Simulated scan of single mutants.
Amino acid sequence: MKKYVRGALRAVCLLAVLFLYVSAQQQAEKLAACNRTALILMERSPLTGSRVEEMQKAEEEQEQPREFTAWSQKNGVEIKNENLARSHTVAAVAVCGRSDLVLEGTARLDGDDREGCLIDENTAEKLFGNTNVTGLPVEIAGEEKIIRGILYDAEDTVLYEADKEEEFPYLTVTTDGSTSYEKLRQDFMARHALEGSFVRMDTLGRILGLLVLLIPLIVVCRAGGHCLRQAWEYRREWAGALLLAAAVLCMVCFCVLAVGQIQIPADMIPTKWSDSGFWSDFVEKERQSLLLLLLTEKQKPLQSFVEGFYLGAGESLTAVILALKIKIL
């Protein structure tokens, strides 16, 4: 009886490891969507809407223009549905540029749509009782807006295009995927004479990707090690050859998985391999960027990103502990 109980418990633990791995992998994929953006903190010298428009025109003249969006957030803003006499308190995110670079939704606001807004599902339920609210009017801080769509991965949030007098302490900039963050920082910030802190958005995603990769690594190593021990024990029989082949297959499968997931950023490739200070400088910049991201006041566009990292990291570490504790075979 105890043998069956142990077997059932082992099966449950293996299923839990698989479930946690899939869930953590999904969080890593969400974070990977931010790998092509950078955040510039302009809290000491925020940009005005007029200044942002000047920067956009200057970018259009570049050979490889960068898309960017300036944004700000105000907490405790009241949004109302006058027809049903309902109201709700939200965080209001004002943007100047493409809204999907800050928060994604079922629709996208551009710089010329100052009459529209996007709200989250919870706010839609509070104000209208359902989420089929596209085209309906709401009042935000005394100003009427038309709902264009629903926001993803946001709660108690409204997003709208701001006017030229608004000040923006945050700037989200896109990359083309091949340009290093350091080159982007030097080119973009120098071109527009920006004074602010540059935060790369791929660090947490890469850390989570490595944590997720630990799960199959441990499972494969333990299963492969068991197969190798059994292959040595039965080395004089045909079963030994099969077990050895199984161990090799486990390692090959992991290598294929690792090659597909591990990508070396352009920043990690030195221009000269003899540059001994490259790696120490790179690690210090990564550390500063990570600290800025984690210590910055959690605005709505960053909240789901950081929470996704913590959730994925917790799931990965839990799966690693389970994989180390249970008997794989």
Rank of each mutant, 00 (worst) to 15 (best):
residue 99 S to L: 03
residue 94 A to S: 10
residue 23 S to W: 07
residue 254 F to Q: 06
residue 231 A to R: 01
residue 206 R to F: 06
residue 183 K to D: 14
residue 129 G to R: 00
residue 99 S to V: 02
residue 186 Q to G: 10
residue 243 L to Q: 13
residue 173 V to I: 10
residue 172 T to K: 13
residue 133 V to T: 02
residue 67 E to Y: 06
residue 17 V to W: 14
residue 9 L to R: 10
residue 262 I to E: 11
residue 258 A to T: 07
residue 230 Q to F: 06
residue 310 Y to E: 11
residue 318 T to G: 01
residue 201 M to H: 11
residue 252 V to N: 12
residue 24 A to H: 08
residue 43 E to L: 09
residue 305 F to H: 14
residue 28 A to M: 09
residue 86 R to I: 01
residue 71 W to A: 05
residue 47 L to Y: 03
residue 221 C to V: 10
residue 297 E to R: 15
residue 250 C to P: 08
residue 264 I to H: 11
residue 127 L to K: 02
residue 270 P to N: 04
residue 218 I to L: 12
residue 81 N to M: 07
residue 253 C to M: 15
residue 214 L to W: 06
residue 214 L to A: 12
residue 237 E to S: 15
residue 158 V to A: 09
residue 234 Y to H: 14
residue 322 L to I: 11
residue 296 T to V: 13
residue 247 A to F: 05
residue 233 E to P: 00
residue 285 K to V: 03
residue 26 Q to P: 00
residue 187 D to E: 11
residue 298 K to Q: 14
residue 228 L to I: 03
residue 220 V to K: 03
residue 256 V to H: 13
residue 66 R to H: 13
residue 244 L to N: 03
residue 146 I to G: 04
residue 161 E to S: 09
residue 81 N to I: 04
residue 150 I to D: 07
residue 270 P to R: 04
residue 76 G to V: 05
residue 310 Y to N: 14
residue 309 F to M: 05
residue 139 E to A: 01
residue 125 E to F: 01
residue 5 V to E: 13
residue 161 E to A: 05
residue 261 Q to V: 00
residue 204 L to S: 08
residue 316 S to F: 06
residue 280 S to I: 00
residue 204 L to C: 01
residue 311 L to W: 09
residue 62 Q to M: 02
residue 178 S to Q: 15
residue 156 D to L: 07
residue 217 L to Y: 05
residue 216 P to M: 15
residue 317 L to C: 12
residue 116 G to L: 02
residue 97 G to R: 10
residue 38 A to C: 03
residue 296 T to R: 15
residue 192 H to S: 02
residue 49 G to I: 03
residue 161 E to Q: 13
residue 63 E to V: 07
residue 165 E to H: 13
residue 133 V to C: 00
residue 32 A to E: 14
residue 47 L to R: 08
residue 5 V to N: 09
residue 219 V to I: 15
residue 16 A to D: 10
residue 267 D to T: 06
residue 183 K to M: 10
residue 98 R to Y: 08
residue 310 Y to M: 09
residue 147 I to D: 11
residue 194 L to S: 09
residue 318 T to F: 08
residue 254 F to G: 02
residue 70 A to Q: 06
residue 289 S to D: 14
residue 76 G to H: 12
residue 44 R to H: 10
residue 273 W to P: 00
residue 245 A to C: 13
residue 279 W to C: 00
residue 10 R to F: 05
residue 44 R to K: 12
residue 224 G to A: 11
residue 174 T to Y: 06
residue 145 K to Y: 05
residue 24 A to L: 03
residue 125 E to D: 03
residue 69 T to W: 03
